[in-house]
Amino acid sequence: MSILINKDTKVIVQGFTGKEGSFHAEQCIAYGTNIVGGVTPNKGGQTHLDKPVFNTVGEAIKATGATVSMIFVPPAFVGDAVMEAAEAGIELAVIITEGAPVKDMQMAKAHATKHGMKTLGPNCPGIITAEECKIGIMPGSIFKKGNVGLISKSGTLTYEGANQVCNEGFGITTAIGIGGDPIIGLSYNQILPMFEADPETEAIVMIGEIGGDLEIQAAKLIKEQITKPVVAFIAGQTAPKGKTMGHAGAIVSGSAGTAKEKMEALEAAGVKVVVSPAEIGKAIAEVLGKK
């Protein structure tokens, strides 16, 4: 078991024939992901990476039965691509593109919700179910199959966390990068209950950062609904106030969104909070018992 995606998931790529789309689609195919085609307007009918190209998402779904779309279109066209996917009937859009305008994401996410489509990202590494299906840009080799679910706002901290978990002798069920933009799709509070319900997941790693209050909301939910052990790290304890730290959403405004308040809220909810990301693997070993 796993959450959201598995080896049978049929995936299309929007922005399939572009440089980024091609490179990562190829990597995903090599990993074993069931990529059934792609969408690039005006290239319909062609073949790319041995897969069919379609002009619209609607045509692609009709021909392939795809349920998930991995989106690589340039930032200015992300909103449009997400809304097209939603109306065409895609169930989950994984938005990798970095730098999508915030206004476009407000519109696109509202539209996706209206059509019952889940979204991940933008500006995220994607999602991977270890040794089954990779939809994103993460290095697949570090994710060994196991019993730990991982949710993170940061790409490289996802790799860091997963690597440590695997080095301790454990492994990953599904790892999900939710992105660090001001407006994102699925977040802790939608994903945590999925891990809770997944019989294979025995512990959860949650990686957050300064800015916004998603981690505070997650603390409330964990207290009420999550029985599996959660290990958390919040990046940016040493970040200065009022400065955007790389991710557009990673900013402490006034006294809100600090690492300290998030760590305290999570600790109060019974989460094992580590002060350094170097401790994630050890903390998982502690809560699951040494292997």
């Binding site: 940061s154 970040a239 790389g246 990673a250 350094s276 990301p277």
Partner: peptide
């Protein structure tokens, strides 16, 4: 560092040590 999250996490680790 590569990546904003790991960059912050690295600063935090230095501070922690």
């Amino acid at each position: 560092v590569n990546g904003a999250g790991l960059a912050m996490g690295t600063m935090d680790t230095i501070n922690y040590m």
